[in-house]
């Protein structure tokens, strides 16, 4: 199976959380796991765009939500996709309390570090999922978080 793992970040522009989620997603697809992860924009899922729906249907998705409304997770589910793991920026901040993000157009240092920490977590899940995809080992799927 050659499908890349799908990452769907929040697309909110009203709060810093959305920016953190996008920055983390970009870091994963551009730097950390460019060969094994791809980004699917939320707006296309909202529209029901065929290619976006096909992408989430073909591969487990990692969603990154900026707030409790969890748009990314809900939209992947609405689109018929499978959520491999859903991340919430607030929870990541709880695990990294010193990294307080600020800024929407441009993140402060804390926000960038928080995005990096989140990206590392997302990359780890990508690795686990790819392990599952390559080996067909069902045990790995069951051991991955939030299945």
């Amino acid at each position: 199976m050659n499908e890349k793992i799908v990452i769907v970040p929040c697309s909110g522009i009203g709060k810093t959380y959305g920016t953190v989620s996008r920055e983390a997603a970009y870091e994963v697809i551009e730097e950390l796991r460019p060969e094994s992860a791809q980004l699917v924009p939320l707006s296309m899922l909202v529209l029901g765009e065929e290619n976006a729906r096909a992408a989430v249907a073909a591969s487990p998705a990692i969603t990154i939500d900026g707030c409790k409304l969890a748009c990314a997770t809900k939209m992947v589910q609405e689109s018929g996709g499978t959520i491999a793991q859903d991340f919430a920026v607030l929870d990541v901040f709880r695990r990294n309390r010193k990294l307080k993000p600020q800024g929407i157009a441009e993140l402060n240092e804390g926000g960038q570090q928080l995005a990096h920490a989140l990206a590392e977590e997302v990359a780890a899940v990508v690795d686990k999922l790819n392990g599952k995809v390559e080996t067909g080992d069902e045990k790995l799927r069951s051991s991955a978080p939030c299945f």
Binding site: S11, L42, V46, A70, C71
Partner: peptide, 9 residues
């Protein structure tokens, strides 16, 4: 600002 995904979510 109106968040597009919120139309559905």
């Amino acid at each position: 600002t109106i968040c597009l995904p919120l139309f559905l979510a």
